[in-house]
Amino acid sequence: MFETLSNVFTDNPLIVSFAIIGITMYIAYKLSDKLTRGRIHGSAIAIILGLVLAYLGGVLTGGEKGLSDISIFAGIGLMGGGMLRDFAIVATAFGASFDEIKKAGMSGVSALFIGVLLSYVVGVAVALSFGYTDAVSLTTIGGGTATYIVGPVTGAAIGASSEVITISIAAGLVKSILTMIGTPFVAKYIGLNNPRSAMVYGGLMGTTSGVAGGLAATDPKLVPYGAVTATFYTGLGCLMVPSVLFLMTRAIFG
């Protein structure tokens, strides 16, 4: 009986994930309505529920992919994986206006450069305060603070230790998760309510998952504007951190 049920689940992974995400969102929207009278958006609660499930999945299995490491929930990994995520992000452009993208283009591009630099400097400063003084470790942790992809790419390129690379990935993950959770709460204080500030936001924060999740929970019509800049961030980070920023860091710290 149980085996049959579990087989049905493992044989239809993507379908299982549609059902689970639907139920999760139903619960989240009900909670949003009943407990917060709609003040905290349903999708913000759903994202937090998702992160809690991911934590449980990680603790139970010791894996790296959250809930989808549990075999009957493997479909969550398919549904929330890179391919469908990017597909849906591109689809949000269906509602975007090219004029707005053009108008805010320059602010978006400058936000990208400033965003990579800011995260990098913050990461290096925190690493310094924890006693790291060599340029390789500082650069890798700074890169990871930009995004969790820049960290390991940089670390591999300049020969950082695996311990430092792990820290750099974790720093990027923390930033990404906090961006997902925090965006709807800070949105009104930082003027995040129009295409221009959304493009600046995507460029400054840079974590595609964080920006995408955070804006979805804030106001879905801003998603395409944030996403269009955020998707350039990781590439720019991989370009700047192991080269220009590494050289500068080495010149300063030896």
Partner: peptide
């Protein structure tokens, strides 16, 4: 898009992020 983003959040390595220790958490 939103359901997919929620599935994505359920895939994050949250345990790994917290395991990164105080340095990673502070930097992030």
């Amino acid at each position: 898009y939103i359901p997919i983003v929620i599935a994505m959040s359920a895939n994050q390595n949250v345990a790994g992020a917290l395991d990164g220790g105080p340095l990673a958490i502070m930097a992030g």
